[in-house]
Design a protein around this nucleic acid. Structure first.
Lengths: 192, 192
DNA sequence: GGACATGGTTGCTAGTCGAAATTAAGCCTT
DNA sequence: AAGGCTTAATTTCGACTAGCAACCATGTCC
């Protein structure tokens, strides 16, 4: 294998950093998956805050996610709400406590470290990581779970001067600015 | 908090990448900790291949590590050997099968992705990650587990023309070139 | 209306973790 | 050399988590 030692060491460092970040997670008795669930709920749009979508996102099973959410619900980090349109379905959302807890997200600590390390300009690092992720996703043919506005179904500015100027042509739903920056379970990258 | 969005996104990407890498770990029935144990044993010097050191490295407990190693031993990836000097202690080492398995390390896949993303020159990425790790370790006051030759106890080239030219002033042990590049549980960075 | 698909929960089993108790060995002081 | 303290590793125990598969309720399609 013609793998440069540098790339290998970079991979090693990424793993190590992530593990360090996760090590601090004993904090509020949250395990890594539970943190990820919180993060997901914080960033997902209102059509994607469902167990099934989260299961896809986590590459896990529905059963497991069901219990994860139940656990988080029990600790008061998330709350469930029935879906008005489909009575099989439920919506989850962060509670105030959940949002507050997220500010102690170990990933934030990592981010602060990066901030320091790069002297505030993480542009180069960011570009490379992004490209790396792109490769990784392509190889795994995993779902992207990208931002709404990068999706092929995103229609920008179809309703001017409203609070929901954008539109999703897949779900046929009006979208706010905030919506357009959220993670969407349905997101498919616009073909290059 | 004055945290740049870029640093935050970089942290997010690091986590995402690591999770992707770990996702492939179902492979040979090895869980993440077990992979890390294998990696550790591959890179640790011969004084550090002990359960206690591994426990520190993993920021875990000895009990857990004991079971992890027992499991790996059961599957034939590692073998134990009593320590001649201290009969309480045991040394672990990769078996041939363990070494072979490591070539399928999911981190290698990540490394290949980085290789692609950076066009082979991961120098900048590497520097930033390294600096980040340094910060993180400083904050966590965790042990460094750095390479032997970066240690304050490392004495280079004290025995010329031998197979063990270097020396560890802490353990008072001769060191080969290979030793000097291995991970050491006792490593303390040379003060800047 | 009946077959089938979909969203979610629950019973079961297996595996993991951390804390504490346990065993064995080394070290040190007298 | 005897007792007390420390250290290395393992084991036991209890709590949790994961995945699978069976299950229920609801929605959809012919």
């Amino acid at each position: 294998m013609s793998l440069s030692p540098k790339a290998l060491e970079a991979a090693h460092l990424i793993d190590r950093l992530d593990r360090l970040a996760r090590a601090g997670e004993q904090e509020g008795r949250l395990n890594p998956v539970q943190w990820e669930a919180l993060r997901y709920l914080a960033r997902a749009n209102r059509f994607s805050r469902k167990p099934a979508a989260l299961a896809d996102y986590l590459v896990s099973t529905r059963g497991t996610v069901s219990r994860t959410l139940a656990s988080l619900e029990g600790k008061g980090y998330v709350a469930r709400k029935p879906d008005a349109r489909d009575r099989r379905s439920v919506d989850f959302a962060l509670t105030r406590k959940g949002s507050k807890t997220l500010t102690r997200d170990p990933l934030l600590v990592l981010a602060r470290n990066i901030e320091q390390a790069t002297g505030g300009d993480a542009t180069g690092l960011l570009d490379e990581l992004r490209q790396t992720l792109r490769n990784a996703i392509a190889r795994n043919q995993g779902r992207a779970f990208g931002a709404c506005h990068t999706c092929r179904h995103f229609r920008a500015h179809v309703r001017r001067l409203t609070r929901t100027p954008h539109h999703c042509s897949l779900l046929d739903e009006p979208l706010s600015e905030a919506d357009s920056r959220a993670i969407c379970a349905e997101q498919e990258p616009t073909p290059a």
